[in-house]
Structures are given as C-alpha cells and as structure tokens.
C-alpha cells in the first residue's frame, strides 16, 4: 500500500447541476443581478412602517385576546353565509363536474365533446376565484349568491380536471372486459369507471369543500358575501380584536374540516 502522503491532499466537490463553468458563473451572476434589481424596486416608507409596528403589536394583542362579543352579530352572519355557500357550491360544483369530467376523458368521449369540456376546465382554472367573483358580483349583485356561483365555477374546473385525469388513467383491461360483454356506454361508465373513480371522487370533493371554505373567506373582500366581508370591515375600522376573532374562527374551522375530511376519507376507502 502506498503511503498516504503519496495521494493528493486537496479535494473539492465537483459541481453537480451546472457542470459547465461559464454557464454556472453566468447564472449565478444573473441571479445576483436580479436580486439587486428586485430589492431596489421595493420602496419602503420607513416612517409608515415604524408607525405600523405599534399597530402590528395591537394586532398581535388582538389575536391573543380576540373579541368575539362586540361584533358577534356580524361574525355569525358572515360565518353562516360562508358555511352555506361552501356547502351549496361544493354540492352543485361536484354534480356539474362529473359529466364534464367524463366528457373531458379522452378514452371515453368523441373528440368535439372532449375539446369543449377541456375548454371549460381551462377557463375555470385559469381565472382566480377573486377575479371570477368580481365579475359575478357585477352581474348578479352583492351577496352570497355571487359567491356561491364563483365557488361552484371554481369547483368545476378543479374537480373535473382531476376526475378526467383519473378516468384517463383507469386500467384499460377492466373497461375492455366490460365492453366485451356487449355493454352500452352507460353500463360501461357504471361498471368499469364508477367503481374505480368513486372513492377518489369523494376524497376530492371533501378536499374541495375545505378549499371552498378558505376561498369563501376571501371573495367577501370584493363583495361576494361571507366572512371575508366581515373581516374586511373589521380591518378597515382598525378593530383588530374582532379581526383576530374572525381569523381564529377561520383557522379553527379549517382545522376541523381537515381532520373531519381525513376521517371521512378513511371511512370511505
């Protein structure tokens, strides 16, 4: 065996991702330049921020000592709107997304239907809930009905896409076996597709219920009803203890929904 000082005494880890030296340096410089430019674009009014610190402290105090009572009427009204619109929009959204999801599955439907359904999904997914809400509020007036429509529309895009992807991935063997028995298209859906996709559909619906509640807290900001409107008012009036109460309520409901849906999903599968 050679003595150890016959070996190099220097080792550096070779670069793992960008092995080309010039590229590596170039990209590092580009990142640095971007960070400097982006940092320069922030204009901070430090006086305003310093003023804000005191408010921030009040907000944290409000969060720690929430005030549920003085705005209870508004909070409960907002909550009822949020919860009802969450449930109704999820139900309607699921009901509509099932045919659209089946229509958007390449292996089950003719080309024109497929394109139309995929188009609906793309539109629904591309626009954010809040932007859809702005339009629905402009069209249907203020209040939870516009919120309900918004969430239903968003649910369709979300669920139909996942459902369609799922159906496209089902085992072709099972579908062929049913087809071979001479089944009609409806029987095919009922026997081959439904059993494979159903548990996942229930799971996704529960997940979407959870998302819809969170979103229902947001779209109120643009007038589509729900707890978001109450929160917006509370913050506008600098009532941080009420705002804290609302936020805590949202957090608790989201937590309950998450645990609850996890439980139901386990029960179903």
């Amino acid at each position: 065996m050679r003595p150890s000082d016959a070996y190099p005494n220097y080792w550096r880890k070779p670069p793992q991702i960008l092995t080309h030296r010039q590229w590596r340096i170039g990209i590092q410089l580009a990142i640095l330049a971007y960070l400097i430019l982006a940092g320069a674009s922030i204009e901070v009014d430090w006086q305003r921020v310093a003023m804000g610190l005191e408010r921030g402290q009040r907000f944290i105090m409000g969060f720690l000592q929430p005030d549920f009572s003085s705005r209870w009427r508004d909070i409960s009204q907002g909550l009822i709107e949020s919860l009802t619109m969450t449930l109704t929009s999820t139900v309607i959204g699921v009901i509509i997304s099932v045919p659209i999801g089946i229509g958007a599955a390449r292996n089950l439907t003719p080309r024109p239907v497929y394109l139309v359904c995929r188009g609906i999904i793309a539109v629904s997914r591309a626009l954010q809930e809040i932007i859809i809400a702005i339009f629905f509020v402009a069209m249907f007036g203020f209040g939870p009905f516009a919120g309900f429509l918004t969430l239903s529309f968003a649910t369709i895009g979300f669920l139909a896409k996942l459902l369609a992807d799922d159906i496209e991935e089902i085992e072709p063997g099972q579908a062929d076996a049913i087809r071979a028995t001479g089944a009609t298209w409806w029987q095919l859906i009922n026997y081959a597709v439904q059993p494979q996709v159903m548990p996942r559909l229930i799971g996704l619906s529960l997940y979407r219920l959870d998302i819809n509640f969170r979103e229902s807290a947001v779209i109120g900001i643009v007038g589509a009803g729900g707890i978001g409107a109450t929160l917006n008012t509370a913050i506008d009036r600098y009532e941080y203890d009420s705002a804290g109460a609302i936020l805590l309520t949202i957090i608790v409901i989201v937590m309950l929904a998450e645990y609850g849906s996890g439980y139901i999903r386990k029960l179903v599968q």
Binding site: M1, R2, P3, S4, D5, A6, Y7, P8, N9, Y10, W11, R12, K13
Partner: peptide, 17 residues
C-alpha cells in the same frame, strides 16, 4: 466540505485500497 488535507489523503488512500 473543507476537510483537513491529511483526512483527504487518507480518504484517497482508502479508496485506492
């Protein structure tokens, strides 16, 4: 990853072994 040079020599030696 800047280990002392005798550690690196020893590592090379063992890898050779």
């Amino acid at each position: 990853r800047r280990f002392p040079s005798q550690d690196i020599q020893r590592a090379y030696q063992l890898l050779d072994r």
